[in-house]
Amino acid sequence: MPLVESGGSPSNAEAPAVDKATAKAHWAKTSSLMLLVLGIWFFASFVVHIFAPSLNGIRILGFPFGFYMAAQGSLIIFVVALFWFGKRQNQIDEEFGVQED
């Protein structure tokens, strides 16, 4: 089977769904949302737990706070952030008219 690069120009008649400028602006905004959510992910997965030994000094309802963050706190952040991300990405798609019809 030939590699794609040697395949020459494709014989497709399909036009792109949106013009280049819109696609570019849409991707720029999508990328910054991705980086933001990736930042939240990195914070909730790693940064906050670096401080677990000192956070454990705080107790809420018996929970040492460092333990609580790894057992529940970060998980709640993940769930909420993902639902928010889904909503926000839809808004971006609609803003540029690239949502599914």
């Binding site: 792109p16 769904a17 696609a23 991707w27 999508t30 690239v98 949502q99």
Partner: peptide
């Protein structure tokens, strides 16, 4: 990268 429209496949096969 965009939800709308089909996918133009580079390799038709």
């Amino acid at each position: 990268r965009i939800p709308k429209g089909g996918v133009r496949l580079a390799d038709k096969s």
